[in-house]
Amino acid sequence: MSSIRVKTFVLWVLMGSLFWGCLEAKSVELLNVSYDPTRELYKEVNAAFAKSWKAKTGDDVTIKQSHGGSGKQARAVIDGLEADVVTLALAYDVDAISQQARLLPKNWISALPHNSAPYTSTIVFLVRKGNPKKIRDWADLVKPGVGIITPNPKTSGGARWNYFAAWVYALEKFKSPAKAQAFLGALFKNVPVLDSGARGATTTFVERGMGDVLLAWENEALLVTQTIGKGRFEVVYPSVSILAEPSVALVQKNAAKHRTEKEAKAYLQFLYSPAGQAIAVKHFFRPVDADALKAAAKWFPKLKLVTIDQSFGGWQTAQKMHFADGGTFDKIYGGK
């Protein structure tokens, strides 16, 4: 009996290693570490790039893909997840990789056009059909009885854009940081659930029926109205919002180690090409190419957009002031 067991065990181990062998691919591989709402986008980009690369050079390239919350993904790269390229929700997270692990140069953001953001987005409101709570602008959010769903800005990149968009509005209206802080305090009082990521928040709003308004990326909001929640939701554009620039960057040290710099660079360039821009539009990201944007005008109404650099003096200062421990966000929650 025991000899049979030993044989079974050996067989298991062999089968295990065999399984393992099958998973190893035999061509150039790139690892793209990305954030949550780009899942559908990169699925298509990766296939399109592999095809165009094959046509151009005759080489096979496979793109391995990883998704998660932007901060979590940045931390994974810092801790040794060997990404060749990162495509994260905000520049701050790429900065963190550059500062803490020195895997890419400090001035990475100037390596590619448009602040290394091949597509942009903004923050909009997603409301239930018919807009029962009559939510038109940011001021409507702080009314009593309005339930707002947003992820936690401390852990979610998307939620930080939400926060900054609200701040931009409040500062413009009240002209005083103290009053803006009070406005955000009132806003977050209306938040019944803080999911840790953008996708979790959308599920809470769409599937679990929580809240009256979801603060969301424009691309996520359109994805909901066009696919999973067709006919049940509406997008509301506020009077002012923020220009969200999700950053892409080559992780130089890793790419050099894997000898994939050529492919990785071409991959990022591809995002700026007409084909790449068209795929971005298809997944409701605003293209940076002016012609592509004009062609897709029906999806992306014009609205007043400000950038982090204009109104907050860049990510580092913005992050320090608002989200460091003891910063404005902690005061909003601590001052109860």
Binding site: L23, S66, H67, A76, L81
Partner: peptide, 13 residues
């Protein structure tokens, strides 16, 4: 929980 922290979430891998 534990696996989620160490995985890296690479699809198919």
């Amino acid at each position: 929980g534990a696996v989620s922290v160490v995985s890296g979430h690479i699809r198919g891998m």
